[in-house]
Computed example of a mutant assay.
Amino acid sequence: MVGVETTSNRSKGAGQLMIAIVLIGIAAGAASGLMFASVISRALISALLLYLASMPLMVAAMGWGPLSATIGGIAAAVSIGALFGLHHCIAYALSVAVPAWWLGHLAMLGRPVNDGTEQTPPSMEWYPVGRILLWIAGFAALITLTTLFAFTTDPDAITAALKRGVTRVFAMHRIETNERVIDAAATLAPAAIVIGPLIMLTINLWLAAKITATSGRLQRPWPDLKATTLPPMTLVGLCVAIAFCFTGGLLGLVAKIAAGALLMAYALTGFAVMHTLTLALKSRALWLSCIYVVTIVLVWPGLAMVALGLADAVFGLRQRYLRGKPPPLPAS
């Protein structure tokens, strides 16, 4: 009799958990879909809501599992397709639902590691943050390609549209230019456009993890972000992408987007390097705040972060620093 009651309680608990997973998924999908659809209003805040549209699904994936995010993503995509058409449904699926579901799944992906002792339970090995960053770069490139190819797949037409956009931006800021400057800016534009989606996906994943941790649903320890490193073969992929940038045509356009995404990923690892190299500073928080503010305002110091990330990938700056001079832990 006791065994029957125990089985019944387990079945009841599993049923309640499944109901919670479905309800959370639908709620997350509704929030994500509304944030994505807000761009139709063309209000100023709609741009911010559009960029944050993947965060509810990421919270569902990390807190209640990828099934919850799958349910929410499908529900939101179907609703958007029914209200605004197939084009918007595909755009939502590729730019919001799929990246949110997969990144949330990877963030919670782990496997037990046998430490060789029977007395202690096996520790967990979690999916590396550097590989997640590489996936973010890939999704950012996919979103950029989807956005550009939504209008045309003709590289010449895309280049002409980029030139018109660059010209309007220069005119808006009253910057005097010539045809050579505009051509150079339009050539670099695909690599620059991908930066926006990459940063927003990174921020969304970080915010979603913070929200999940605050709610007590985050089942993994908070990772050491300053130790983030990209896989070694990423540097080879970057070199190949840069080489194909000079081919022109559709292949050259794709290569520029890929190169821009990988360079931005190295810029983020450059910030991780900076966090490591400043561990011994007494005014560390002030220095880091100033560097972030200057980078956001002036933009071009981000190139120094790219160089720092690349230098660390080649020379192992963090490992050399920590081996040569172990820094004290910060007071705060």
Rank of each mutant, 00 (worst) to 15 (best):
V2W: 15
A14V: 10
G216M: 09
F246L: 11
S41G: 04
F315I: 11
A241C: 01
I158C: 09
S46V: 04
L198Y: 09
R168W: 12
F315T: 07
V78H: 05
R217P: 00
L329N: 05
M124Q: 15
Q319S: 10
G116K: 07
G196D: 09
V297D: 03
L253M: 11
A69N: 13
L106E: 09
L286D: 11
P128K: 03
T144E: 05
P326G: 06
F244T: 02
G73V: 08
L34K: 02
G81E: 05
H88A: 14
G138I: 07
A61K: 09
A60F: 07
Y127E: 02
S123V: 15
L201G: 00
H87N: 05
V273C: 14
I132E: 04
L207A: 15
R174S: 13
P223G: 00
S123C: 10
A76V: 11
P190R: 06
A261W: 13
A14F: 15
L268Y: 13
A313W: 08
T152E: 08
P112R: 15
W300S: 14
L250M: 15
C239T: 10
F244G: 04
L230N: 05
F84S: 08
S332R: 08
L235S: 01
S123D: 08
A304L: 15
R131C: 07
V96M: 11
T247M: 11
R180D: 14
F36L: 05
M200C: 03
I211Q: 06
V98H: 10
S32C: 01
G81R: 05
G33W: 02
I19V: 10
A184W: 07
A75H: 00
L133R: 10
C239L: 14
A69C: 13
L103G: 11
R180P: 02
F246Y: 10
P128G: 00
L103M: 08
V181R: 08
I211H: 06
K282W: 13
T159N: 06
I74D: 02
A43F: 04
A213F: 04
V181S: 11
I45T: 07
G216H: 10
T153P: 08
A192N: 04
A160Q: 11
A137F: 03
A285N: 12
P128E: 00
N114E: 08
N204P: 08
A285V: 10
I26E: 01
I26D: 04
I19D: 02
P326D: 01
A243G: 11
K282D: 13
A107Q: 10
G81A: 12
L57R: 01
V169G: 02
W300F: 13
I199D: 05
T70H: 06
D312K: 06
L205Q: 05
R320E: 02
L148H: 00
W64P: 00
S95C: 06
G3F: 06
T234C: 05
S79I: 02
I158N: 06
E118L: 15
F36H: 09
K325H: 13
G65Q: 03
T214Y: 08
A209N: 01
A209V: 01
I40N: 02
E179F: 01
L198D: 03
P155E: 04
M35D: 01
A184T: 12
T202A: 12
